[in-house]
Nucleic acid binder design. Sequence first.
DNA 1: GGCCAGGTGTAAA
DNA 2: TTTACACATGGC
Length: 224
Amino acid sequence: MNAQIVHDRLLDHYGPQGWWPADDAFEMMIGAILTQNTNWTNVERAIANLRDAGLLDAQAIADCDEVRLARAIRPSGYFNQKGKKLKTLAEFYLAHGGEAGIDRLPDVRRALLELHGIGPETADSILLYALHRPVFVIDAYTRRIFARLGLTPPDAPYDTLQDYFQSRLPASAPLFNEYHALIVMHAKQHCRPRPACSGCPLQQSCAYHGRAGHGSMQSAHLTA
DNA sequence: GGCCAGGTGTAAA
DNA sequence: TTTACACATGGC
């Protein structure tokens, strides 16, 4: 099992995911912040509220009262924190004249990481899904799945995991786009922290269930 | 009622 | 440098 084979099996099983679910680059960036440690269905509610309030716009967010902004994004959780983060992002977006201006920065990743509320996953999500850069996004699902497959250490730092993928795959934005989306799709169905695996025929050899070996159940899921 | 969800910033050890 | 904790809603 290797990184390319896992991708191929996921794609074969789930089909193309066509991410990111957003109408434009700015909405994509908004979603990247709102989805931090939060269920995507809650993010969809928050984005719908923003749209209804005319706040799906950088200038509107920059001008918006913090209380009103927080109220709009309430369903996505952490609404006070995320409200501040959205304002920071909107001001950054405006200062550079939109995504085209951001795309021209000499080091976009560093610039994004300097913003309050944007860490490595959010920065890389923006690079990949808004700016179409060949950057591999690491999230909790990626870490969990590949640790259970025995391919990466469970406590590996973000950059180490990112190197694992980027050194083994061609530097292709469309490939990384699909791969990350497929990882999320697969994880939601089969790789929860405590998956309900009653009836799983591979329990005895499943790494998750605490017995010997790596990846038997996970491999089965990938091939199922 | 507890766990979980496509993290990040801050402060203490 | 590592670890703990705050941030918060909604589904199951």
